[in-house]
Computed example of a mutant assay.
Amino acid sequence: MSASKKDELLAEAVGLHEQGHTEQARERLLPLTAAFPEAADVAYQTARVHDVLGLEAEAVPYYERSLQKDGLGEEDRRGALLGLGSTYRVLGRFGQAVETLRRGVSEFPDDGALRTFLAMALFNTGEHHEAMQLLLRLVATTSDSPDVRQYRPAIELYAADLTRTM
């Protein structure tokens, strides 16, 4: 099968997924990923449909494969890091979740979703202080609430040291 045929079939599967026909997308992606095991984009889309279908354990090897190869665009790489980290967390693999999500935050420091999922994984590993710091900084820097904006300097000060008292 040619690369152009692969791209055509991948686009069809992604379209099916976006239209809510996730099982049909999975049926198209499985043979495609078998035919193109080195294709990061195919592996990522295969991981996504497994994740949406609640087949998290089956999604993991596809996420891992997608991140081991070159070929993912920035948005897909961001999605793969978030998806894999979140999936590890759902499966109770908290250390791997933290490691993956830290890598995601390192590569995409402005991504609030990655920071939020990292905070959840840190909570699961007992790193409550760091989890709260991440969330407080996220709230302080992204909230549109006038009340939060009014107290942003105080929130950021306390985020730096939650044990601080007056």
Rank of each mutant, 00 (worst) to 15 (best):
G112N: 10
E107A: 13
S66Y: 05
T116I: 06
V49S: 11
A140D: 03
A140C: 05
R152M: 00
T141L: 11
R77A: 03
L84H: 03
G71M: 06
V98M: 12
K69G: 00
D51L: 01
E64D: 07
S145V: 03
A154I: 11
V98G: 11
Y62C: 07
G71D: 06
G83A: 05
H129S: 13
V148A: 08
K69L: 00
G71N: 07
R102C: 08
L136F: 13
T46C: 08
G79T: 01
G92A: 04
A47L: 04
E75C: 01
R137Y: 08
R115E: 12
V52A: 12
V90R: 14
L134F: 02
R93W: 01
R65T: 14
L84E: 09
L72Q: 08
H129V: 14
A121I: 11
K69T: 04
L136C: 09
R93N: 11
P146H: 12
Y62E: 08
R78D: 03
R89M: 00
G112Q: 10
T125I: 12
G104E: 06
T142H: 13
F108G: 01
E156G: 08
D147H: 12
D76H: 11
A80G: 04
V49T: 15
L91G: 03
L55F: 04
N124S: 15
G92Q: 12
V105M: 08
G83Q: 08
V148C: 08
T141Y: 03
G85S: 10
E127R: 14
Y88H: 15
T46W: 04
M132H: 10
E58W: 00
T87H: 06
G85P: 13
E75V: 12
A97M: 08
A97I: 05
R102A: 04
A121V: 10
L157D: 15
M132I: 09
A119T: 07
D51M: 02
E56C: 02
R152G: 02
A119Q: 05
L134T: 01
S86M: 05
P153D: 06
A121G: 13
S143H: 06
A97H: 10
F94E: 13
E130G: 10
G54M: 09
A140W: 04
G112V: 09
L84K: 11
D111E: 13
A97S: 15
R89I: 00
Q68A: 14
D76E: 15
T125G: 05
T87Q: 03
H128L: 12
A80D: 09
L101T: 06
R65Y: 01
F108W: 07
L82M: 11
T141R: 15
L84I: 05
L118E: 09
L134K: 04
P146C: 05
G126I: 12
H50Y: 15
L82T: 01
L122K: 03
R103F: 01
R93M: 09
